[in-house]
Write a protein that binds this DNA or RNA. Sequence first.
DNA 1: ATCCATTTTTAGAACTATTCCATTTTTATT
DNA 2: AATAAAAATGGAATAGTTCTAAAAATGGAT
Lengths: 140, 140
Amino acid sequence: MDKVKDIVKERLQLHGIKPSLQRMAVMEYLMTHRTHPTADMIYTDLYPSIPTLSKATVYNTLNLLVERGVVRMITIEEKNARFDACMEPHIHFRCRDCGAIIDVDVEAHWIPAMPDGITVEMSETYCIGSCAECNKRKVS
Amino acid sequence: MDKVKDIVKERLQLHGIKPSLQRMAVMEYLMTHRTHPTADMIYTDLYPSIPTLSKATVYNTLNLLVERGVVRMITIEEKNARFDACMEPHIHFRCRDCGAIIDVDVEAHWIPAMPDGITVEMSETYCIGSCAECNKRKVS
DNA sequence: ATCCATTTTTAGAACTATTCCATTTTTATT
DNA sequence: AATAAAAATGGAATAGTTCTAAAAATGGAT
């Protein structure tokens, strides 16, 4: 009866990933939290409900998911990698003031013309500036 | 008589940065090595000629240069930050096979329409795939 | 030149994100 | 139930970066 878990399981299996408890938990977390969390945030939030969970498992799972193209890794922040289960074309904006990372929808992602011989598998566009809330705060 | 050093010094002073020996060296390195080096590469290469150089100074300098908008930090690689003194609009391509980071010229950098209230200061586009050499190698 | 305040550099410790490793647990198969 | 393979675990190890406190360099004012 748990629709979400069924979708999660299907998405993993579709990419040849065995849906273990831990992998399901990480994937479900990413699909239900569109906050571009770090590995540590995922671990911290899942730990209470899976007390045997290890950080290594979270990292292993995330690496596997990225490898198989189920989630994407976002390197918009030097410090830590962030993860996003939404594979629709969109770009990311980071607010320099509050640190929020915001999805920005685009019709189609821009991929500039490449020099001869180069083949592009994926591309990411990162924008950095101030978000609406922080801009408002500054004026007042 | 050293033209390069004059240009380096001018570029630092233009941004209110006192041109110390170390800062000059880091900036000159970035301007003459268009390889998007890491902090460690810069340190390792400069160390022989400045034997008192400390890694902290390299990091301090790079952070200062980025803050003042003299160089840009490239986070195309999770592991370490890379630096680029070229501020002309261009994007970066990383070869998944050999790790090379290549400049790709663009007429103008794409900045998608942002939701209301957001102001964008800068944007970066990263492409990942296989470079010409690696593609050639794979066919043969 | 000398003194003083300020800025910059330095070395190494500290911190943090991530990976590695050896062991244990779980899962699937016979 | 026995066995083999895959996954998870905890903790140690690694690596990039920052922090800290002290030393060195710089730039006036005297």
